[in-house]
C-alpha cells in the first residue's frame, strides 16, 4: 500500500518518492532547483542533533531542510515502512 505523507513525518532511513511541492516563490524555487521535483526518489539520511533540520539524500547528494520547509513537500511512501 502506498501512502502520501509530508516529509516532516518521515523517519530516518525511510524512502519515498516526491509527489508534490506545495511551496511558491523563493522557497518553492530553491527546493526545486536542488532537484526536489515530483517523481524524484529520496531517502531520509539523518536529523540534526535537535531533530531539525533534516538531511536527505536526493539524486547523488545530501540536502538539508528545516522541518517547517519539509512540511511543504508531499512524499509517497510504502505504508508498511512507517
Amino acid at each position: 500500500m502506498k501512502k502520501i505523507i509530508s516529509m516532516r513525518k518521515m523517519s530516518v532511513y525511510q524512502r519515498g518518492v516526491i509527489k508534490k511541492i506545495n511551496a511558491e516563490g523563493e522557497l518553492g524555487m530553491r527546493i526545486r532547483e536542488m532537484g526536489l521535483v515530483p517523481g524524484t526518489p529520496i531517502v531520509i539520511q539523518g536529523k540534526a542533533p535537535l531533530k531539525d533540520p533534516v538531511a536527505l539524500k536526493v539524486k547523488d547528494f545530501t540536502l538539508t531542510l528545516r522541518n517547517n520547509e519539509a512540511d511543504h513537500i508531499l512524499v509517497e511512501v510504502d505504508e508498511e515502512d512507517i
Binding site: 523563493e26 522557497l27 527546493i31 536542488m34 533540520p53 547528494f61 540536502l63 531542510l65 528545516r66 520547509e69
Partner: peptide, 9 residues
C-alpha cells in the same frame, strides 16, 4: 527564512 542547503561530501 528557508534553509535549503547542500551538505557537500
Amino acid at each position: 527564512t528557508p534553509f535549503v542547503m547542500e551538505l557537500p561530501p
